[in-house]
Write a protein that binds this DNA or RNA. Structure first.
Lengths: 154, 154
DNA sequence: AGAATAAGTAGCGATTCGCAACTTCTTTCA
DNA sequence: TGAAAGAAGTTGCGAATCGCTACTTATTCT
């Protein structure tokens, strides 16, 4: 861990943070995941300023994590829905939320996410090895292309 | 999904975002995870403004995700190290990075994280059911306290 | 002693945030 | 059918934050 100095500029983390790296992005995402799809709903529930919300929604649409559609039955209304790309942020959001529960609020914070099939709570989001072991502080290191292919072949 | 309207105010996500919800927080965290522990190292590698970096490090220390210590051998130097609380943000960081790789940059972005035991790459960070199935778009819903205890007893 | 290094701090212009009021289009209601 | 209300923004403006550069302080090297 830490032997390889990653080139920070070419990494995908900055790209992700450009979109999601502000105080509202994940909250909007979660609200949408929670069934809020209209501008006014989001604005009132989150308490976000209207211009900021408008700006974020536009950026989300621009970046393809939300789709904007007007409602035929009521042409005043606009529906914002998560795309697959937007839904793919769920693990990051859940990880952040679980971290907050464990280390900040301390409480399990209902309602919780459960598997719809058996109603059981989801696991802690974790970094797992290829065979499913949870990897902790000393279990990880950075590898360059050559190293990995070599190991995969063995 | 979305039937239960979560009380957004009492959730732990805002608490997490208060600390990590800006463009630099996760980048500093990753740099630290990557073996950068000094002010000047972080500043030069990330290209972050000095006052902002100082401010973020102070906040991280204040919130207990980093520990600040002076180096006995060279008393000019200060070492910043991740605490367990800070390390616990790794799943969120990796999830974000993997999302960026998959949906933004498109490339696997070396170096990659591998299991130190067998050198194999880590899995995709995902939301898993109690028995380890990856849960997707339609596989989740929100549950209130009563629902969950009921299911757990069965 | 003098120069260099590490870790900040201070000043200041530029950007972003957040609040409140206003606009536009559409729907409902009397 | 005309007036009021609802939905989705937009605009203006003061406050806070960001980012760049220069400066400070303490320590170490030569």
């Amino acid at each position: 861990m830490g032997q390889v100095r990653e080139n920070l500029a070419e990494c995908s983390l900055p790209a992700a943070l450009e979109l999601m790296g502000d105080r509202w992005a994940f909250l909007i995402l979660r609200a949408s995941f929670n069934g809020l799809h209209h501008f006014e709903e989001l604005q009132q529930e989150l308490g976000i300023a209207r211009n900021i919300l408008a700006n974020r929604l536009a950026r989300f649409v621009e970046h393809g994590i939300m789709a904007r559609a007007s409602v035929p039955e009521d042409r005043r209304k606009i529906v914002y829905n998560l795309t697959d790309k937007g839904f793919a942020l769920l693990p990051a959001m859940v990880a952040l939320r679980q971290w907050g529960e464990r280390w900040e609020t301390g409480s399990p914070a209902f309602p919780i996410l459960v598997d719809v099939r058996d109603g059981r709570p989801i696991q802690q989001v974790a970094v797992l090895s290829h065979d499913g072991r949870a990897l902790g502080k000393g279990d990880l290191h950075w590898a360059l292309p050559g190293d990995v292919e070599e190991q995969a072949a063995s």
